[in-house]
Each structure stands twice: as structure tokens, then as C-alpha cells.
Nucleic acid binder design. Sequence first.
DNA 1: CTTATGACTATGA
DNA 2: TTCATAGCCATAA
Length: 107
Amino acid sequence: MANEGFFQRVYDIVRQVPVGRVVSYGQVAALVGEPRKARFVGFAMHSSPGMAGGVPCHRVVFKDGSLAPGFAFGGPDVQHEMLLEEGVLFRDDGRVDMAASQWEPLA
DNA sequence: CTTATGACTATGA
DNA sequence: TTCATAGCCATAA
């Protein structure tokens, strides 16, 4: 493991995110051991096989809890709805309540 | 080989 | 609080 491409490692982490939880791009990057590649985490999601590949890219959000504008499954509203279905808590601003729904890796 | 691009984040106004 | 800019570095052409 860990010898695969950077993207492959990102998919591996995102795949471990449980339902009802979200992670920030920077957090995923940190979990793969490279916190400076936060942008490529998002880029990896763009190239990700999606749910079909076991990569719930809709659970990956900004550190702020905002969703990706314009690159979600058809609109941030769709991603927002999907997360609601998974039990993710949202604030009135339309942002994810990171304090309650951010995934904390259990080593 | 070089250049351009990007689902980010931190910082400053 | 929101908005704009800089730095970040892998991937594609």
C-alpha cells in the first residue's frame, strides 16, 4: 500500500469515511501524509470513479464546511441533499456543521 | 524538456 | 462577516 499513486491513496482514505460524516480536503491530504496537496485531493475526486468505485466524493467538503461550487454531481444542492440523506448536519448558512459531522479517523 | 491548470487553504482588507 | 490574492505541487499537454 502507500506505494500506489497519490490519487489511489486519496481514494483509500475517502472510502473509509462512514455515512453521516464528512472530511475536508486538507484532512484527507493529511491522512495520506501530504497536507500540502489539498488541491489534488479535490482533483483526485474529479478523476475518481465515484460511488461506483467505492469513493463517496460527496462526503469531501471544504474546511469551512462549504461544498464544491460547480463541480458537484450536478450542483452543490444535489450534494447537499445527498449528505442530508446520510444524516450529516447542516447549519442555516447551508454549510456542513463540521463541529458535529467532521470525520475523526480512529487510527 | 516547459507551460498551464486546478473539487484547497491561509492570510489580509 | 465576505471578498480577493498568494502559495501550494501533481497531472496533462
